[in-house]
Design a protein around this nucleic acid. Structure first.
Lengths: 216, 216
DNA sequence: TCGTTAATAAACTAAATAGTTCTATAAAGA
DNA sequence: TCTTTATAGAACTATTTAGTTTATTAACGA
């Protein structure tokens, strides 16, 4: 089923630095996301990426640098996911609905993003500023949100005096928290929150909350 | 200014096991909250609590046990805070307002709670189940919420078919996330979220969101 | 006053792990 | 064919740190 058969003939060794580096980063994200900076083990990353420590330290120079690269990669995923949200329809209500749903889905479908950000926050964003130097991390979602809210206000559908950044925070909160704190919530509430039905319920509630708040 | 003057006469050594253990736990919460389980250092806890490692290991037998005690202590604080919420007024709308505000304030005023829970979640609630064995951690907030929602429904003020647990999650989310993810949010949004005005705005928005969702 | 035990302090062990070094192999391009 | 360099991997070092041990001090109750 798999081309890699250690048991049979020796696998042909392919030389592809870029791809190897990406494989290392992917494994690093897995490891850092699972165990955090302190808990992560370079040896584990070497093993999972099917490389070795010498190679990792050749491409990245320290655990810290590798972590920063992983963090930047995570944010790239987040931005990519946010860029896909289609909000060009004529109905602002429908657009907001989509935005809230998509934001929710992003967190639902990318536990790696949620966990990496959580780790970063719990460390007081120790490395995020450095990751920022690598790539601009500004979220495109804010602009989209701005446009659709204005439109809704002009059409008389939405209330006045909406704080955009705080609205963005709340929309994120309603999705993020469900997944970031799922473990303790499940225990304290004694409920399985990973079921599709439960997730759908939370998603719909988030949409309704935001929309009923916006409507005048 | 302080009774402890190492420079002057030797401080009288007081024997008070219970208080010493509490001092150790307090310091442990500080350390675990700041650095997480892996990052925390027993030596640091010894220093901060003005005790020593031998004593710590006499009272608690391992880092893990000390962490669990700290976690249980954190939940005790959370419950205590939730128990104070007064929701016995005649107006369900006002009661919900208070509940959302108090929940928000709990997280605003107790960063230790937020951080401990975040650490625990990022470790897949590795220790919470054990902390549960020590003390019942069921949140009293859920019962209060149940009563007030029912009342509001009977009075025709609130919508039907409200999922209590999910509502509880959303109310928590709107407060918790703001503080748990404040660091990355501040960077990405380029805004100081620790200002009193910003906090007040988020709080009011949370109240409005929940209330406009509940109202029929 | 005496024995128990809470508290102090320092040195130590054992294990884990980030980071280095060295040697070897083989793919790709010239 | 030859040279460069990506890859592999093992052994090593230096450091950190959980947990132990041992010795000492002094508060408090009997």
């Amino acid at each position: 089923m798999d081309a890699d058969s250690e048991t049979e003939t020796k696998r042909k060794r392919i030389r592809n630095p870029a791809q190897t580096q990406q494989r290392i980063i992917d494994s690093a994200i897995d490891e850092f996301m699972e165990r955090g900076f302190d808990g992560a083990r370079i040896d584990a990353i070497a093993e999972q990426s099917k490389t070795n420590k010498s190679l990792i330290y050749k491409y990245f120079n320290s655990k810290e640098e590798l972590y920063i690269a992983s963090l930047a990669g995570t944010y790239a995923q987040l931005r990519a996911s946010q860029n896909q949200i289609d909000m060009d329809g004529p109905d602002p209500v429908e657009s907001v609905r989509r935005l809230v749903q998509s934001t929710f889905d992003t967190f639902a479908q990318n536990p790696r993003i949620v966990r990496m950000l959580t780790h970063e926050n719990v460390q007081n964003a120790r490395f995020l500023k450095q990751a920022l130097t690598i790539k601009a991390l500004y979220t495109p979602l804010l602009d989209k949100l701005d446009r659709v809210i204005r439109k809704g206000q002009e059409m008389g559908l939405f209330r006045q005096s909406i704080d955009l950044k705080h609205l963005y925070i709340s929309i994120s909160a309603l999705g993020y928290f469900y997944f970031s704190n799922g473990y303790t919530l499940a225990i304290v509430l004694d409920e399985d929150l990973t079921e599709a039905a439960a997730i759908a319920r939370q998603r719909e509630q988030a949409v309704e909350m935001v929309l009923s708040y916006l409507r005048r």
